[in-house]
Computed example of a mutant assay.
Amino acid sequence: MKKYILKPGRHQFAPSSPAVHINDTLTDTEAKWYLQRFPHIAKLFIPLPTEGEVSTAKKSKMKSNQTEMEQTSAFAPPSGGKAGQ
């Protein structure tokens, strides 16, 4: 999974350079190199979640999945039985 994701479209990184950078051709290594030299281009990338946001998102998804499983099992027929009997 890529760490640096550009917003849609072609982007210009260096002053006076053409707008040629797109997600399909830009590697994380290149993105990091450009960001170190041209910090103003950070606004061209989709912000990455912080470590805390990732943990919170994972916990939220796990809780959502657990709730969904509980709701589904509440309506499931007992093992070996058929629904509606």
Rank of each mutant, 00 (worst) to 15 (best):
K59G: 00
S55C: 04
E68R: 00
P18I: 14
K58R: 13
P39L: 07
S55A: 14
E53I: 04
P77C: 03
P39M: 10
S17L: 03
P18K: 14
T72N: 12
P8G: 09
G81P: 12
L26T: 14
K82W: 09
K61N: 08
T56N: 08
T27F: 15
M69C: 04
K59L: 05
V20N: 10
K7G: 08
T67Y: 11
Q66T: 04
T72G: 06
F75Q: 13
W33S: 14
N65I: 13
G80R: 06
S55R: 09
D24A: 13
A57N: 00
E30W: 14
Q66E: 02
S73Y: 11
K3I: 11
F38W: 15
M62G: 03
T72S: 05
I41A: 08
T67N: 12
Q66S: 05
M69R: 03
A31G: 11
L26V: 15
E30R: 12
T67C: 10
T29H: 15
K43F: 00
P47Q: 12
E68S: 07
H11F: 01
P15H: 11
E51G: 11
F13Y: 01
M62N: 07
D24K: 08
Q12G: 07
S17C: 13
P15W: 02
P47Y: 03
I41M: 05
K7M: 03
F45G: 11
S64V: 08
S55E: 05
K43L: 08
K58L: 12
M62R: 10
I5T: 11
E70T: 07
H21W: 13
